[in-house]
Design a protein around this nucleic acid. Structure first.
Length: 915
RNA sequence: GGGUGCUUAGCUCAGCUGGUAGAGCGUCGCCCUUACAAGGCGAAUGUCGCAGGUUCGAGCCCUGCAGCACCCACCA
C-alpha cells in the first residue's frame, strides 16, 4: 500500500470496476428497496445540494443493498420546461435571434441538441460522486415512455372530469408570455406609492376618493366599492361615478370584503386585473374590461391615446393627467408585496386567459388522508404540518404553459373550436368520428414541468404498463428531498400516485436541510459563494475558480466583489479532498436542522480521517500474514474489548441509518475508528505483536481481531465512504476470510449476540485511565516520552494489582513506565505528582526524575511571565488583537485560577511554591 | 395576518423519551516514538438567548419575553 492515501486515482478506477461488473442493478431475492432520484435539470450541473442529496440516497441504497435488500436507485433527469427553454433562448439571443425566428420545430430541435450536448454532465458528476444508480434504467421526462405516461395521465384525468379548460385570471408572466401556477409566484416586498384619486359623482357635485397602488388599472375599472356598514358611504349606494380620464360611468357598490380602515375606505374594482376584484366582480355580476396585452402594454379596451404604452409609462402618464385634472388628492409612500415570476423576475399580471386546470380538491383529500393515517411518514415528522397547511388551502392547479419546450397538451381543436382530448390525433378522430378531411389543430401549449414530475415514481417504473418493476418496487421506499419542493413536487406525487395506482408513491419522505455556505448564506451565483462539489473532490486552482465564479453572471457588475471575496477566502484555490471525504462531510452535516452550513474545514478533517483509516489498514496489513498462521488462538482482553466496542458501534450506526440520522451514524463510526480502533486497539496490539515474549496463541488471536475488526469496519463505513473502503477491502477482505468480489455485495455488519463484554470493557477502561493518568503527569511536568520512569502506587486494591499484572506490557509501553511498585504498609509517600483511577493513586516520584529546584524555578519563571501578561492586559490599548484574544481567554476571572494552578494533583510539594 | 423553525465552546453544529455539557475546525504546550506530521501525547475553553415555573434534579418539560430565519396569504 502507498504510504499516503490519494483518492483521485482510486475513486475513478473503483467506480469503473463497479459499473463494469454490473453491481448497481438490483440483485438477489431479498425484499425490494427503491429510491427514485429527484430528477435534476437535464442540461444543468449538480450543485452542492444535489451532491448532498445524492450522498444520502447512495448511502441508503448501499446500506440496504448490503443488508440483503433488492435495492434499486432509479436515476433520471428532468426536462425542466421554463428553465431549459430560457437557457437556450439566451443562447439564441447571443446570436441576435429569437425563438420566433426559428419557429417551434427548429427551436425544440435546438433544445434537444443542447440536451444531447450537455446532458452527460450530470451523469459524469454522479459517477464521480460514487452514485450507485442503476444506469440501465436511466430515464428522461421527455422520453417516449415518460411522454406516454404523461399523455395517459392527462387523458384519464380529463375523462374523469379532473382536468378542465377554463377562462379565468391567471398569474401571467409578461416577459415569458406564459401563465404560471400559484407556486411559481414569488411575493416580493417593494416600496411603492399609494395614490389617492378622486372619482366624481356622475350626477353632479362631489366625489369619492379611492386609494390604489396601481393607477394604470383605472382604465379597466368597472365599479368602486365600500363596506356596507361604513357610515361615510352608506347613503351613496346606487349612485354612479364618472371614471376619470375615460368618462365611463361606473357604479358605486357595497361589499363587505372592503377594509374600512384602509385608505379612504373605497376601493376601485378592476376584475380583469386583480384576483380580489375578480371575485367581487363575480358576486356583483360586473363586466371584465381587459386593458392589458400579453406583454403588459395597454391594449384596445382602453382609450386610444394609451395604446401601446407599457405599464410603467402608462402609470406615469395617468398620474400626470389625474394631477392636471385636479383629481389626484395625494400620494403616499407605501410598502407592499408585488408578485414576480420565480424564473423571469418580471412583475406578474393577473390576466384573463384560457388555461388548463387540474381540479385539485378530489385529489387532495386522499392525499391528505394518506399522511394523516400514517401511510406516508415525514422525517422529521413536523414537516407533515407544513404539508397539511398547504393541502388545506390548495387551489386548482394551472397546468398549461405558453412555452415550446415540454409535453404538448394532448388536445385538438376542430374548426368550430370544439376540444377533443385524446392520446393522439388519430384517437381523437376515431373516438369522435371526425372525418379525415376535417382539420384538427393540436393545442399549442405544453404542460407544467411538475405535471410529469408528479408521475415520476411510477412512470419511471413503466406505468401505465404493468411492468415487473412496477410490481416489485412500487410503492417506493423513501423519497429523499428538500423542504423547498414539498408543495411543488412531494404533494403532487402523493396526489397523482394515489389517484393512478391506488397506492402511495413512497412510504417515507426524508426531508433534509438546505446546504448553505460556511456563513449560513444561501449559495447562489450572484453571491459568488457557490462551490462545485467536484472542485472539492478534485481540487481547483485559484484562477480557474475565480473565472468560474465571475463568468455568466446575470449582473456583471458584481464580478469584482466576487473575485475579491474568492481570492481572500481561497488564496490557494481548493485542494483535492476526494469523494469519500466530501461524502462523509455531507453525512455528518445531515442533522435535523433545515439550514446546513457547509465548511470546507470539515472536509479537510474528514479527508484526514480517510488518511487515518488508510494508514490503520497499512498497519494491519504489516502486522498480519497471508495466509494466517493456523495455530491455536487465545484472545487478549484487548481483542475482546475491541469486538465489544465494534458491536456497540455497529448498533449505533445501524440505528442512525434507520432513523435517517446520518450525522449520528457518521460520528459513531468516526469515533470508533479513530478513538478506539486507532488510538487504543492498534497500540494495544503492538506489545503483543512486536515483542518476542508474547504468547504465540495471543499473537494469532490479535492478528485475527485486527483483520476482522478492520474488515467489519470497512463494511460499516462503506455506504458513507464507498471508494476507500472498497480499495482497502480488496486487500484486506481475503486475508480476513472473505471471498466476495466487492465490498458492495458483502453483508452489512450486524451485532453478534456474544460480542458485548462489559467486564472486559471495565478492565480496559481501567487500563486506559491508568495510562491517561500517567500521560497527563508526563505532559504537565514536560517529561519527554523518551524518558521512562517508575511509579509508586497508593491505596492499590487486590483488583488493581491483578489488573496491573495482566496489563503490564501495555502500560509499560503506552505510558512509558518502567515499573510500578505499591507503597509498603506505613510507607510515607515520596515527593511526587499524582493521578487517580478510582481510589488508586498513581504517584510519579520526583526524586531523580526532575530536579525539584529547577522545576520550581521553571514554574516561577512561568508565573512571572503570566503576571506580566496580566499586567499588560489591564492596559489593552497597547495590546495587539491576537494577544488580546489570548488574554481574554486566559485571564478572564473564571479562568484565572485554572491558569495558575496545574490540573495535576500536586502532593508533597513544598508549600512554598515560589521557592 | 397565519404557520414553522432556530438561539449550546472563537467558528459550524450534535445533545435520543429530563440525571454531573460533546464533536469537527480553530487555540495553547510537548513530541519527526518505524501505521499515519493529512500525525502522536497532553491542555484550555461554555451563567446551554433572557425571565419565571414544574421537579430531588432542566440545555432538554411549561409560561412569558427578546432576537434571527424560513414558508404561506387577495387588504386595494
Amino acid at each position: 500500500m502507498d504510504k499516503t492515501y490519494s483518492p483521485g486515482e482510486i475513486e475513478e478506477r473503483v467506480y469503473r470496476q463497479w459499473e463494469a461488473n454490473g453491481l448497481f442493478a438490483p440483485a438477489g431475492s431479498g425484499p425490494p428497496y427503491c429510491i427514485v432520484i429527484p430528477p435534476p435539470n437535464v442540461t444543468g450541473t449538480l450543485h452542492m445540494g444535489h451532491a448532498f442529496q445524492d450522498t444520502i440516497m447512495d448511502a441508503l441504497t448501499r446500506f440496504h443493498r448490503m443488508a440483503g435488500d433488492r435495492a434499486l436507485w432509479q436515476p433520471g433527469t428532468d426536462h425542466a420546461g421554463i428553465a431549459t427553454q430560457m437557457v437556450v433562448e439566451r443562447q439564441l439571443n447571443g446570436e441576435g435571434r429569437t425563438r420566433h425566428d426559428l419557429g417551434r420545430d427548429a427551436f425544440t430541435a435546438r433544445i434537444w441538441q443542447w440536451k444531447e450536448q450537455s446532458g452527460g454532465t450530470i451523469a459524469r458528476q454522479m459517477r464521480r460522486l460514487g452514485a450507485s444508480v442503476d444506469w440501465s434504467r436511466d430515464r428522461f421526462t421527455m422520453d417516449p415512455g415518460m411522454s406516454r405516461a404523461v399523455q395517459e395521465a392527462f387523458v384519464r384525468l380529463h375523462e374523469q372530469g379532473l382536468i378542465y379548460r377554463g377562462k379565468r385570471l391567471v398569474n401571467w408572466d409578461p416577459v415569458l408570455k406564459t401563465a404560471l401556477s400559484d407556486l411559481e409566484v414569488q411575493s416580493e416586498e417593494t416600496d411603492g406609492s399609494l395614490w389617492h384619486i378622486r372619482y366624481p359623482f356622475a350626477d353632479g357635485d362631489g366625489h369619492v376618493t379611492v386609494a390604489t397602488t396601481r393607477p394604470e388599472t383605472l382604465l379597466g375599472d368597472v365599479a368602486v366599492a365600500f363596506h356596507p356598514d361604513d357610515e361615510r358611504y352608506r347613503g351613496f349606494a346606487g349612485r354612479r361615478l364618472t371614471l376619470p380620464l375615460t368618462g365611463r360611468e361606473i357604479p358605486l357598490i357595497a361589499d363587505d370584503f372592503v377594509d374600512r380602515a384602509f385608505g379612504s375606505g373605497c376601493v376601485k374594482l378592476t376584475p380583469a386585473h386583480d384576483f380580489n376584484d375578480y371575485e367581487v366582480g363575480e358576486r356583483h355580476g360586473l363586466p371584465l374590461i381587459n386593458v392589458l396585452t400579453a406583454d403588459a402594454t395597454i391594449g384596445d379596451a382602453a382609450p386610444a391615446r394609451y395604446h401601446g404604452l407599457d405599464r410603467v409609462t402608462a402609470r406615469r402618464q395617468i398620474v400626470t393627467e389625474l394631477d392636471a385634472a385636479g383629481l389626484l388628492e395625494k400620494v403616499e409612500p407605501h410598502r407592499h408585496t408585488v408578485p414576480k415570476g420565480d424564473r423571469s423576475g418580471a412583475v406578474l399580471e393577473p390576466w384573463l386567459t384560457d388555461q388548463w386546470y387540474v381540479r385539485i380538491a378530489p385529489l387532495a383529500e386522499p392525499a391528505t388522508r394518506a399522511v394523516e393515517d400514517g401511510h406516508i411518514r415525514f422525517v422529521p415528522s413536523n414537516w407533515d404540518k407544513t404539508y397539511f397547511e398547504w393541502m388545506r388551502n390548495i387551489k386548482d392547479w394551472c397546468i398549461s404553459r405558453q412555452l415550446w419546450w415540454g409535453h404538448r397538451i394532448p388536445a385538438w381543436y376542430g374548426p368550430d373550436g370544439t376540444v377533443y382530448v385524446a392520446r393522439s390525433e388519430a384517437e381523437a378522430r376515431e373516438r369522435h368520428g371526425i372525418a379525415p378531411g376535417v382539420p384538427l389543430v393540436q393545442d399549442e401549449d405544453v404542460l407544467d414541468t411538475w405535471f410529469s414530475s408528479a408521475l415520476w415514481p411510477f412512470s419511471t417504473l413503466g406505468w401505465p404498463d404493468r411492468t415487473p418493476e412496477l410490481a416489485a418496487f412500487y410503492p417506493t421506499s423513501v423519497l429523499v428531498t428538500g423542504f423547498d419542493i414539498i408543495f411543488f413536487w412531494v404533494a403532487r406525487m402523493i396526489m397523482m400516485g394515489l389517484h393512478f395506482t391506488g397506492e402511495v408513491p413512497f412510504r417515507e419522505v426524508y426531508v433534509h436541510g438546505l446546504i448553505r455556505d460556511h456563513e449560513g448564506q444561501k449559495m447562489s451565483k450572484s453571491k459568488g459563494n457557490v462551490i462545485d462539489p467536484l472542485d472539492i473532490v478534485d481540487g481547483i486552482g485559484l484562477e480557474e475558480l475565480v473565472a468560474k465564479r465571475v463568468t455568466g453572471l446575470m449582473q456583471p457588475k458584481l464580478a469584482p466583489a466576487i473575485e475579491r471575496g474568492t481570492r481572500k477566502q481561497y488564496p490557494a484555490g481548493i485542494a483535492a479532498h476526494g469523494t469519500d471525504a466530501l461524502r462523509f462531510t455531507f453525512a455528518s452535516l445531515a442533522t435535523q436542522s433545515r439550514d446546513l452550513s457547509f465548511d470546507l474545514g470539515r472536509v479537510e478533517g474528514y479527508r484526514n480521517f480517510c488518511n487515518k483509516l488508510w494508514n490503520a489498514a497499512r498497519f494491519v496489513l504489516m502486522m498480519t500474514e497471508d495466509p494466517a498462521d493456523p495455530g491455536p488462538e487465545s484472545p487478549t482482553p484487548y481483542d475482546r474489548w475491541i469486538r465489544s466496542r465494534l458491536a456497540a458501534t455497529i448498533a449505533t450506526v445501524r440505528e442512525g441509518f434507520a432513523q435517517y440520522r446520518f450525522d449520528q451514524a457518521a460520528q459513531a463510526a468516526y469515533e470508533f475508528t479513530w478513538y478506539e480502533f486507532c488510538d487504543w486497539y492498534l497500540e494495544f496490539s503492538k506489545p503483543v505483536l512486536q515483542t518476542p515474549d508474547a504468547r504465540p496463541e495471543e499473537k494469532r488471536a490479535t492478528r485475527r481481531a485486527l483483520l476482522e475488526t478492520l474488515e467489519a469496519l470497512l463494511r460499516l463505513l462503506h455506504p458513507l465512504m464507498p471508494f476507500i473502503t472498497e480499495e482497502i477491502w480488496q486487500m484486506v477482505g481475503a486475508r480476513a476470510g472473505k471471498s466476495g468480489a466487492s465490498i458492495m455485495r458483502e453483508p452489512y455488519p450486524a451485532v453478534s449476540a456474544d460480542a458485548a463484554a462489559p467486564a472486559v470493557e471495565a478492565e480496559v477502561r481501567w487500563v486506559m485511565d491508568f495510562i491517561l493518568g500517567v500521560r497527563r503527569i508526563r505532559g504537565e511536568l514536560d517529561i519527554p516520552p523518551s524518558v521512562p520512569f517508575a511509579l509508586r502506587l497508593q491505596n492499590a486494591s487486590a483488583l488493581d494489582l491483578e489488573r496491573l499484572a495482566r496489563n503490564e506490557a501495555a502500560i509499560r509501553r503506552m505510558a512509558g513506565v518502567s515499573g510500578a511498585m505499591p507503597l509498603a504498609a506505613g510507607e510515607a509517600a515520596p515527593q511526587a505528582a499524582a493521578a487517580h483511577v478510582g481510589d488508586l493513586g498513581i504517584l510519579v516520584p520526583m526524586a531523580g526524575l526532575i530536579d525539584v529546584d529547577a522545576e520550581l524555578a521553571r514554574l516561577d519563571k512561568r508565573r512571572v511571565k503570566l503576571e506580566q501578561e496580566l499586567a499588560r492586559a489591564r492596559t489593552p490599548s497597547s495590546a495587539t488583537r491576537a494577544s488580546c484574544r489570548m488574554r481574554r481567554r486566559r485571564w478572564s476571572p473564571r479562568n484565572r485560577s485554572a491558569c495558575l494552578s496545574s490540573s495535576v494533583n500536586w502532593r508533597n510539594l513544598p508549600n512554598n511554591r515560589s521557592g
